[in-house]
Design a protein around this nucleic acid. Sequence first.
DNA 1: GTCTATAGGGGGATAGAC
DNA 2: GTCTATCCCCCTATAGAC
Lengths: 211, 211
Amino acid sequence: MTEKRKAHQASAGSKRAILEAVLSRAVEAGYEGTTMADVARVSGLPIGSVYWHFKNKEQLFVELLDYCYEVWQESTAPVRDMRELLHNTISRSAAASADLADPAAAFWSIGLVFAFERRLEDNLARQRYLEIRRKMFESVTSLLRTTYDGVPDDVAAELAHDMAVMGRALTDGFRVAAAAGDDTDFDRYASLTADALESLVASRLKEYAHV
Amino acid sequence: MTEKRKAHQASAGSKRAILEAVLSRAVEAGYEGTTMADVARVSGLPIGSVYWHFKNKEQLFVELLDYCYEVWQESTAPVRDMRELLHNTISRSAAASADLADPAAAFWSIGLVFAFERRLEDNLARQRYLEIRRKMFESVTSLLRTTYDGVPDDVAAELAHDMAVMGRALTDGFRVAAAAGDDTDFDRYASLTADALESLVASRLKEYAHV
DNA sequence: GTCTATAGGGGGATAGAC
DNA sequence: GTCTATCCCCCTATAGAC
C-alpha cells in the first residue's frame, strides 16, 4: 500500500469520525448548540483537523445531512402502502428521541430544527434539508399514486398529493410531540392515523365513483 | 398625577415596548437568534433599560410567552366543535408565517422553537412553553369530551384524548409546513383534517354502539 | 428609570509548526 | 494530515453616571 493510499484511508476514517461526532452533538444540541470545539472533542481529533476536512461549520452540516439521508435510504425498506409508511415514520419519530445514535432516525430530528430557524435562511445546510424534504415528498406522492387502482389519473394525483400533505403533517407533528416530551404511544397513533386517512380516501373514492 | 404615578406609567409603557420588540425579533430569529442588543434597538430603549425591566434574557422570554398566551386567549373566540377548532388553529398556522406581528399567532410559532431546542432543557422559557402546551391540551380534551353526547364517560374520555392528540399533531405539523415554506392551502387541509378525524370518530362510536 | 461603557466569556475560524 | 495557539467578533450582563 502506497503512502498516498494510507493517507487517503486515514483521511476517510477521520472524516467519518467527525461526521459521527457532529451527529451525536447535533441531535442533542441542534445547529447553533453544536460547537466546533465539541465536535473536535467528541471525534477525538483536534479542531484543526475538523477544518482541514470541512470548509466550515455550515459545510459540515450539509455533509452531515447528506450522510444521514444516505443511511436513511439504505436502511429503509421499501413500503407498499400508506399504513406501512405512516407506521414507519411515526414510530421512528419516537425512536428519534430514544435512539439518537441512529443516523437514519436522527436526520429528521435535526432537520426540523432547520425548518424553524428562519434566521438560517441563507444557510446551506438548511437549504439542503428543505431540498431533501421536497424530494421525500415527491417520492411519497408517487408511491401513493400507485396504490389507487382503476382511478382516473387526475383523481389519483390529487388524492396522492392530499394524502402526502396530511401524512407529512402528521409525521412532523408527532416529531414535535416527541421533542416536546409529550407522553404519546406512537404505535397506537400510527394506526389511528392510518385509519383516519384511509377512511378519508375511501369516502373520496366513493364520491368520485358516483359522478 | 403624582411623580410616582408618572414613573409607573412610563415604566409600563416601556415594558410593553420591550415585549413587542422581543416578539418581533423572536418570530424571525428564535430564542438564540434574538440578541438583547436587537431588542434594545427595536424597542428604542437602551440595553440598560431592558435589564432594568427584566432580570435576564430567560425571564424576558418567559414574560413574552405569558404575554402572547394572554393575548391569544383574549382574541380567541370559544369554539364549539373539532372542525371549528382545527380550522382556527391550522389556518392560524399560516397566519403565523404571514402576520408575524400578531402576538396570538406568534405564540405557537415561537413555542415550537423551544420544543426542539433540547439543549434549553433547563431554560425557564422552554418550561413555560411546555406548561402552556399541556394546559392547552387539557382544555381541548375537555372541550371535545362535551361533544360526544350519549356516550359512556370512559369511551368519551378516550375518544376525546385521541382526537386531542391527533389534532395537536396535525396542528403542529402544519406549523412545520408553514415554517418550512411548503406550498400549502391551509384552509383546504383544515377541512380535510376535520373530515378525516370526524369519520374516525364516527366509526369508533359505531363500533362501541355494537358492543 | 434612563443611558453609556465595558467587563467577561465563548464561539468560529486561521496560522503555521510538525 | 495532524495539532496548538491565537485572533477577532459578538453576546450576555453589570457598573455606575445622570
